[in-house]
Simulated assay, not measured.
Amino acid sequence: MYKINGYILALLLVLLLAGCKKEAVLQPSNKDENNLVVKDNPADPVDHAIYQFFQATGVPIFYNDTIARQQVGDSAGIPRYSFQKLSIAYSITGYRTRGITFKLLPRKEVLLPLLPLLKGGFLSRAPLNIPIYSLLIVERMQVGGSLNNGISTIMNKPYAFLNTLMLPIINPDTMTVASRRSYIAEVLTAFAYQKLLPGYSKQIDDSFHSITKKSYDGELIYIQPLSSLSPDGSKQLEDFGFIETGYSSTLILQEYTPLPQDDLLSYLYSVFFYDTVADFESRYANHPLVLQKFKVIRDIVKQMGFRFAN
């Protein structure tokens, strides 16, 4: 019995050694290499413009989610590669985000008009103390619903992942001033929303969501029909502190209250969209709860380091 086992072990050892001769030993990759660094390509106008953007801002822009390729070995003369991708499938909370679909740009040249807007609009207002790891520009995108940090389905709107902020492509040269301002507000909203969680969650619950919860004697106020909050029809959703969203695909002020997360997103968008506080206040002058919630969120994002003209 022991002799047979010895023969078997010897045979396995010979086979193992023979297999090792057929395939080259894997070489360790350079673990210290930072793939979120843009390298210049003077021969390519787009790549060179992206490099200049990176040199000026420190923020890398990508038009492909695969950002690096390293040869890690050789099998029978055929190279073996390891591909480094941006972390699209993971959120800041650590769980895997589902329902993500996106399409890469048909031509990378289409992102050139967007670079000045991102530099002068988004980066000029983002906090200096919060790193922006990378921007991924795509043709179109969709992020699924309830599994996506609890917010509604996002379609062709910016969304922040673990190490990148995905942005749908636009051409600012063909847009109105208001449309360009809306796009930048969406980018800032996505970035701020990610950075608010989980560090500011308690502060938001205590000083923001509580305003709406105290406006109603019932137990539940979010995701409820307006008819149950105001059976006689005398109140609007704004009377409970809800406003239209400019970001996610929630029910617009009609019959139901939004999710708490979408409530927050609607105010983040408004904080970044309106040029001045007075512009917002003039629209909702008759809704004091809305004005209170707007001030709370504006104060929080200013505390985070987001910059405003006034």
Results as ranks from 00 to 15, higher is better:
Ser75Met: 08
Pro127Tyr: 00
Ser248Ala: 02
Lys295Pro: 00
Leu36Cys: 00
Arg69Pro: 04
Gln70Gly: 04
Leu165Lys: 00
Lys213Phe: 10
Val290Arg: 10
Asn34Arg: 12
Pro127Val: 02
Lys213Ser: 08
Phe161Asn: 08
Leu111His: 04
Lys39Cys: 06
Pro231Thr: 15
Ile137Glu: 01
Ser234Gly: 13
Leu220Met: 10
Gly150Tyr: 07
Ala49Asp: 13
Leu291Cys: 12
Arg298Pro: 00
Leu268Ser: 05
His287Ser: 12
Tyr81Leu: 13
Pro231Trp: 12
Leu104Thr: 08
Arg69Cys: 05
Ile297Gln: 03
Ser228Tyr: 07
Leu196Lys: 01
Val271Met: 05
Asp40Pro: 09
Met175Glu: 14
Arg180Asp: 03
Phe273Lys: 12
Ile184Asn: 13
Gly94Cys: 02
Leu197Val: 15
Asp232His: 05
Met166Tyr: 04
Glu281Trp: 06
Ile184Met: 14
Lys214Glu: 08
Asn30Tyr: 12
Asp299Met: 00
Val14Asn: 05
Gly199His: 09
Ser179Asn: 05
Ile61Tyr: 10
Tyr274Asn: 00
Phe62Gln: 01
Ile50Met: 14
Pro288Trp: 10
Leu226His: 11
Ser134Arg: 11
Val296Tyr: 00
Arg96Met: 03
Ile170Val: 10
Pro231Arg: 12
Leu117Asp: 09
Pro260Ser: 01
Leu291Gln: 04
Glu255Phe: 12
Leu112Gln: 14
Tyr81Ile: 15
Leu135Gln: 02
Met141Asp: 11
Leu11Trp: 08
Thr257Tyr: 11
Arg98Leu: 15
Pro60Gly: 09
Leu188Phe: 03
Ala126Cys: 13
Ile88Ala: 09
Val271His: 01
Asn34His: 12
Gln292Val: 08
Pro288Ile: 07
Ser134Ile: 05
Val290Met: 09
Phe62Leu: 08
Met166Asp: 06
Tyr193Phe: 00
Val72Met: 07
Pro106Ile: 09
Val72Trp: 07
Gly199Phe: 11
Val277Ser: 07
Ser227Tyr: 13
Arg181Cys: 06
Lys302Thr: 00
Glu109Tyr: 11
Ala278Phe: 10
Met155Ile: 15
Thr174Phe: 04
Tyr267Cys: 01
Val277Asp: 02
Leu117Lys: 01
His287Gly: 07
Gln84Leu: 14
Ala76Cys: 09
Ala24Ser: 15
Val138Gln: 04
Leu112Phe: 14
Glu186Phe: 05
Ser134Phe: 08
Gly144Gln: 06
Glu139Asn: 09
Asp173Ile: 03
Thr93Asp: 02
Asp74Thr: 09
Leu17Asp: 07
Asn34Glu: 08
Asp40Tyr: 08
Pro225Gln: 02
Gln303Met: 07
Asn286Trp: 00
Phe208Tyr: 11
